[in-house]
Simulated scan of single mutants.
Amino acid sequence: MADIAVRPMTADDADRVLAIYQAGLDGGNASFETVAPTWAAFDAGRLADHRFVAVDTDDIVVGWVAVSPTSSRAVYAGVVEHSVYIDPAAQGRGAGRLLLEVLIAATEAAGIWTIQSGVFPENAASLALHQRAGFRVIGTRERVGRHHGRWRDVILLERRSPTIA
């Protein structure tokens, strides 16, 4: 992992972030979405203080993580939903783990007590990554949506902060 660093995401990262997002979508097991959004839509839907990119030694973005609020209600102010995507060519180098470590530290420092996500059961690498990062399986939403003409289940994961009471 010495060749991977994490830094805040900026608008200059847009092309790489969206290309990595699209590569994940093209793989078929990352999201119900099939086309990455525009940068304007991506930017508007994610909290600015909790977006990070993993970069290699040439400062090329190889992965990203970002969060969205789960609700506008004040009671859920400390709950976010996250996404993490790694360039297929960079998978297995520790970028996902580093991104989640930085995200967890940043969200806890901001008083966020729960990070949640939904992952397709077929995405074994993502499930293992999240469990190593302290996420637990909450349950499975069976046949929650259709994707490429077939029903898909989603495994719900969450990480509750042990430091925020």
Rank of each mutant, 00 (worst) to 15 (best):
V137L: 14
V102R: 02
I104G: 11
D87W: 07
A66H: 05
I104L: 14
A89R: 11
G27H: 07
S71G: 04
A77E: 12
G24Q: 02
G78D: 02
A95F: 07
T114E: 10
G96H: 10
Y85I: 13
A105C: 07
A66S: 13
T34Q: 04
Y76H: 10
R141Y: 03
A74I: 03
A19I: 11
L25M: 13
S72P: 02
S71V: 03
I112W: 00
G63T: 06
G94W: 05
A77T: 09
L103N: 02
P121Q: 01
A106T: 12
G27Y: 05
Y85Q: 13
I60N: 15
L98A: 13
E81K: 01
V79R: 09
T114V: 13
I86W: 10
L25W: 15
Y21H: 13
S68V: 02
R136M: 09
Q91T: 12
A128G: 06
T34D: 02
D43A: 14
T38D: 01
G145C: 06
L47W: 02
S31Q: 01
H130N: 09
G24P: 02
D13H: 14
V80K: 04
V65S: 15
F135V: 11
F52P: 04
I138Y: 02
L98T: 05
P69Q: 10
A89P: 07
R16M: 05
G94L: 03
T57D: 13
F42T: 00
L99N: 02
T114D: 06
I115G: 00
V53P: 10
G149C: 12
G78E: 00
Q22V: 15
G96A: 10
D26C: 12
A44T: 08
L25T: 13
L99E: 04
R136Y: 06
D59R: 03
I60A: 13
Q116K: 13
H148P: 07
V75M: 11
A133F: 12
V55I: 15
A66G: 08
G28R: 08
V80D: 04
T70C: 03
E33Y: 04
Y21K: 08
I86G: 08
V119A: 03
G45S: 14
L25K: 13
V35M: 01
R46M: 00
W39C: 02
Y76D: 07
S83D: 05
A36H: 07
V102T: 09
A125Y: 11
V17T: 15
A105T: 09
T70G: 03
I104Q: 13
Q91P: 07
H130Y: 12
F135A: 11
A66Y: 10
P121Y: 05
S31R: 04
R93M: 08
V144W: 00
A125D: 10
V75E: 06
Y85L: 13
D12Y: 08
A106W: 11
R51L: 01
S83E: 06
I112Q: 05
